[in-house]
Amino acid sequence: MAAAAAAGAGPEMVRGQVFDVGPRYTNLSYIGEGAYGMVCSAYDNVNKVRVAIKKISPFEHQTYCQRTLREIKILLRFRHENIIGINDIIRAPTIEQMKDVYIVQDLMETDLYKLLKTQHLSNDHICYFLYQILRGLKYIHSANVLHRDLKPSNLLLNTTCDLKICDFGLARVADPDHDHTGFLTEYVATRWYRAPEIMLNSKGYTKSIDIWSVGCILAEMLSNRPIFPGKHYLDQLNHILGILGSPSQEDLNCIINLKARNYLLSLPHKNKVPWNRLFPNADSKALDLLDKMLTFNPHKRIEVEQALAHPYLEQYYDPSDEPIAEAPFKFDMELDDLPKEKLKELIFEETARFQPGYRS
């Protein structure tokens, strides 16, 4: 834990890192770190609560700039109880001085990944967590956004079992017609939660990839272990087919990539493993919904509104309290091709509203 900075004593240090967030945020305490930044909790002297502050230093890398800009653009436009918001952003007053960006968010005690390492969940908890994931996802999908990296560590939890989806750095506007060349190379989302079509096709992607990830998360809540822990690309596919069985001819016809289709045709026939054999203690309604989410063919996979209306979630289902976005989200430009200098300018502009004396 960093010592509390005395008023006016300059930035606090946390594990050798400068955290320049005073005077409003003090009493910093280390939480963890990701690929390009550290997260601390801090005391907000204005709202009198502890908050989470993520320090991001992305400006050396085009990919990190892209992810940072995506996350900020999306989260500043989203407003939903099951999606983490941005409360404040701290950065230098000029673009030349801006080396880091500090993002202030609600402090959540833990995440689903940490929880599943230590606790076996009751059916009631599984049901409530799944409902909140789908409630947040309904809003995301209504904005025409794909999260693309749903996994237990991106689901934040607090002691009252509130759940918030975080990390929109890989999110995209849904565009089933656009052929994202190089899709697989830039697709760094965790393999275990990846839909089979991501490994088999490169053309376009749809909201059904997020539903697949939610199915993987439900299976993990039922058993405290990942359902498809593939060691590499082909191993991942083999794990999936080992449980779902061989795809039907109709399902194979959806695979545009001939090499991928021929690979699947070359494999020995596998039978589907019954879900109640894998999860003998699970609620039968939970397994019915799991089956509809972990469907090989993305066109037959359940959609988020149908999933919310499934009998497993009937005690929570309330369409009048499951809000959607006001308007579909649009990125003005494809960020993939922009140089990091341009992305830095866009991050600077996007964060201006939090600067003292800002006038829109």
Results as ranks from 00 to 15, higher is better:
53 I>T: 00
105 Q>D: 11
258 L>Y: 07
312 Y>N: 15
215 G>S: 08
350 E>I: 00
212 W>S: 13
86 I>M: 04
314 E>K: 14
202 S>L: 13
105 Q>K: 15
182 G>C: 10
247 P>I: 00
261 R>N: 09
191 R>I: 06
279 F>W: 05
67 R>C: 03
53 I>L: 04
59 F>V: 11
343 L>M: 13
352 A>Q: 13
92 A>N: 00
267 L>R: 01
318 D>K: 03
47 N>P: 05
321 D>S: 04
69 L>K: 04
121 L>G: 07
321 D>W: 07
314 E>L: 01
208 S>T: 14
47 N>M: 12
50 R>S: 15
59 F>I: 15
307 A>M: 04
244 L>D: 04
134 L>W: 07
327 A>L: 03
349 E>S: 02
283 D>A: 11
25 Y>I: 06
235 D>I: 05
219 A>D: 07
132 Q>M: 06
347 I>R: 09
225 R>C: 12
199 M>C: 03
317 Y>N: 14
278 L>P: 02
230 G>R: 00
27 N>C: 09
253 N>C: 07
219 A>G: 11
64 Y>P: 10
58 P>S: 12
18 V>E: 09
186 E>Q: 04
278 L>Q: 15
127 C>G: 08
234 L>D: 11
214 V>L: 13
167 D>N: 15
212 W>K: 07
97 Q>N: 05
9 A>K: 04
291 D>C: 11
169 G>L: 05
24 R>L: 14
110 T>E: 13
51 V>S: 02
236 Q>Y: 05
153 S>R: 14
18 V>N: 03
125 H>I: 10
248 S>Q: 07
21 V>I: 14
260 A>G: 05
247 P>E: 03
35 A>K: 12
240 I>F: 15
114 K>V: 13
280 P>L: 12
198 I>E: 06
139 Y>K: 12
61 H>P: 05
148 R>W: 08
166 C>E: 06
246 S>F: 03
241 L>T: 06
93 P>K: 07
44 D>E: 15
39 V>P: 06
86 I>P: 00
311 P>N: 02
347 I>S: 14
116 L>N: 07
150 L>C: 06
194 R>Q: 12
351 T>A: 13
133 I>R: 06
11 P>F: 01
236 Q>R: 03
355 Q>H: 12
42 A>M: 03
298 P>W: 04
270 K>E: 07
352 A>H: 01
97 Q>A: 10
136 G>W: 15
166 C>Y: 14
88 D>R: 03
198 I>L: 11
37 G>W: 04
163 L>W: 00
347 I>W: 09
188 V>I: 14
268 P>V: 03
211 I>F: 15
268 P>R: 03
106 D>K: 03
52 A>P: 03
131 Y>R: 04
325 A>K: 02
338 L>F: 02
228 F>I: 15
201 N>Q: 07
109 E>I: 01
136 G>M: 02
310 H>D: 02
316 Y>K: 07
47 N>F: 12
318 D>G: 03
330 K>F: 01
